[in-house]
């Protein structure tokens, strides 16, 4: 660990975080997000269209066409915006492991970049749900002593990468 005492030199001398270096997460995770999006779209679509169709077929009077337009409009708007966020946000999603810290970036409309130093990580967790097991990715969770916003969650890693980061972290925090 370099001894960078308390001297404050000009900013160009500091290790700058270049977001170009970010590593993309596994495409399998994109697939998982697409699956979730599709499932939710289908589910909510059926939830909206089902009762309306039932009313039209078996009901005393068919629901007014305006109801179809309004509900359908809201549904397509929400799902469309979410889809856009996923589509545009995917290439931006990425992480970076440096000597002393981990960085994760996500989001298209509202972009967040969180940087957590290794020395502040209290414990870590590798999580793999049914989707992750099926598509072959896992989520690495790094917990600090701060609030939820100070915890890092990197989804879409391969099991090997997650383990490697974890190992690095164990070496780093004691070294």
């Amino acid at each position: 660990m370099p001894h960078l005492k308390n001297e404050l030199v000009d900013l160009s001398g500091w290790p700058e975080l270049d977001e170009v270096d970010l590593v993309a997460v596994l495409p399998a995770y994109a697939k998982a997000r697409a699956v979730v999006w599709g499932a939710v779209a289908l589910g909510t679509g059926l939830l909206v269209a089902g009762p309306l169709t039932a009313l039209a077929v078996w009901g005393d009077s068919a629901p007014p066409w305006q109801l179809w337009v309004i509900l359908g409009g809201v549904w397509s708007l929400v799902m469309g915006l979410w889809g856009l966020e996923e589509r545009k946000g995917w290439p931006l999603r990425g992480y970076l492991v440096r000597e002393h810290d981990v960085v994760y970036r996500s989001g298209w409309w509202s972009r967040t970049v969180v940087a957590v130093p290794f020395s502040r990580i209290q414990h870590s967790e590798i999580q793999q749900g049914p989707l992750g097991r099926w598509l072959g990715y896992c989520t690495l969770k790094l917990y600090t002593a701060g609030a939820a916003g100070a915890n890092l969650e990197i989804p879409g890693l391969s099991m090997a990468t997650a383990r490697n980061i974890r190992r690095l972290l164990e070496d780093g925090s004691h070294g």
């Binding site: 409309w109 509202s110 967040t112 701060g146 100070a150 890092l152």
Partner: peptide
Amino acid sequence: QAVQLSQNRIHARRGVAHLTFHTSSGV
């Protein structure tokens, strides 16, 4: 504990960003 930088599309276009410094008992 962590540093968080966030901006939405409009912020990005205007060239502004929010910065949050997380400590273990407040930000």
